[in-house]
Simulated assay, not measured.
Amino acid sequence: MTLTSLLPELAAHETGSCLVTRGQTALLTYYREEHMADSLAKINSCTKSILSALICIAIDREILPHWDTPISTFFPALLQSSDKRKREITIAHLLTMSAGFRWNEFGGLNSFPVMTKQPDWVSHVLELPMADSPGTVMVYNSGCSQLLSAILRQASGLSTAEFAERYLFGPLGIQNYSWETDPGGNHTGGFGLKLTPPDMLKFGQLFLAQGIWEGQELLSREIVQQALKPALTATAPVQAEYGWHWWISEITGETAAGAAVSLPYFYALGFGGQYIAVVPGLEVTAVVTFDKIKRRSQQVHIFRTLIAPLLLRTL
């Protein structure tokens, strides 16, 4: 059975696009409407994984210091905080969502919607009370991503989008994109980026190739491996391990011969079922986008429940 057998189901779920490749060879190319191949898709929190790559590039190029550097280097006001734990927060803690801020991404007093209503998003996050010691608990937090975007801008002297154009989008041939900013001019670190599905696929293929694109090293193999190393276990918004703004899990199923199999994979996940998934053991990269989110409970699982089982049967 080939992946093209999924076309009726993808259409039934009102999938916007679904692209699957093995290496550079297309296994499935689906667009609900032909123009979607060239149209910008709202990738939501997949933005976080793009930002992570930019932070990796900045560390590789020594534009940013080592990931264990305290963020008070960039936000010295934290040194005056009455809570000493804020002085311990590092770049890595932001990347692994373990900074320790009291935060509820999906509601409550310290939530993502509250941040987006502030005149200064960065100060708002930095001034939040602490709930945990840095590095101990993963709490999904788009505020951490916003701090990373601000740090990258401060360290490089470029906006996050300009940095991306120079070191990531340019080499990948990504020209068509849109990226929101906060009131302070920082590009949104946790959401707000729009890319075409083929360009999302390029990004996943870059990480499948351990940072190499058309013979050029955009990210070092060492930092790619660090970014994809499970750091902490998360329970929300999904149950999985979490690395540097990447989700890390396993796909399980049966081979064509009926043998049980489990393969590790990593993925970027955006609200409403946006996916960039990479299965190194199969050399597979997959992209799923949706522009209709009324049935998101089904959309979020398109890769794991529909695509992954068929991929495993190719073994």
Score class of each variant (00 low, 15 high):
residue 88 E to D: 10
residue 80 Q to H: 11
residue 75 F to S: 06
residue 95 L to R: 03
residue 93 H to I: 06
residue 71 I to P: 02
residue 85 R to P: 00
residue 78 L to S: 03
residue 104 N to F: 08
residue 76 P to A: 08
residue 77 A to W: 10
residue 76 P to C: 08
residue 100 G to H: 02
residue 92 A to S: 10
residue 63 I to V: 15
residue 83 D to I: 09
residue 84 K to Y: 14
residue 74 F to T: 03
residue 84 K to I: 12
residue 64 L to A: 06
residue 89 I to S: 00
residue 93 H to A: 09
residue 88 E to T: 06
residue 80 Q to R: 12
residue 83 D to V: 10
residue 76 P to I: 07
residue 104 N to A: 13
residue 77 A to N: 13
residue 99 A to N: 04
residue 90 T to V: 06
residue 62 E to Y: 10
residue 71 I to T: 08
residue 90 T to S: 11
residue 74 F to D: 00
residue 69 T to Q: 11
residue 86 K to V: 03
residue 70 P to R: 10
residue 86 K to I: 00
residue 85 R to N: 04
residue 84 K to P: 10
residue 85 R to I: 00
residue 75 F to A: 07
residue 67 W to D: 14
residue 84 K to W: 11
residue 74 F to A: 01
residue 94 L to T: 00
residue 87 R to C: 07
residue 104 N to V: 09
residue 95 L to W: 01
residue 80 Q to W: 08
residue 72 S to M: 12
residue 92 A to K: 03
residue 74 F to R: 01
residue 70 P to M: 10
residue 73 T to S: 12
residue 66 H to M: 12
residue 95 L to Q: 01
residue 85 R to F: 00
residue 87 R to A: 09
residue 75 F to K: 09
residue 79 L to I: 06
residue 67 W to P: 06
residue 67 W to Q: 15
residue 87 R to T: 07
residue 86 K to Y: 02
residue 75 F to T: 05
residue 96 T to P: 04
residue 81 S to T: 05
residue 67 W to T: 12
residue 82 S to R: 14
residue 104 N to S: 15
residue 64 L to Y: 06
residue 64 L to C: 11
residue 73 T to D: 09
residue 88 E to P: 00
residue 73 T to N: 10
residue 93 H to S: 05
residue 68 D to L: 11
residue 82 S to D: 14
residue 83 D to G: 12
residue 90 T to F: 02
residue 72 S to H: 15
residue 90 T to M: 04
residue 101 F to R: 02
residue 87 R to N: 08
residue 70 P to S: 13
residue 95 L to D: 02
residue 76 P to V: 05
residue 101 F to V: 04
residue 85 R to M: 01
residue 62 E to P: 05
residue 73 T to Y: 11
residue 76 P to G: 09
residue 73 T to G: 06
residue 101 F to G: 03
residue 74 F to S: 02
residue 92 A to G: 07
residue 96 T to V: 04
residue 82 S to I: 09
residue 76 P to H: 09
residue 88 E to F: 01
residue 104 N to K: 12
residue 72 S to N: 14
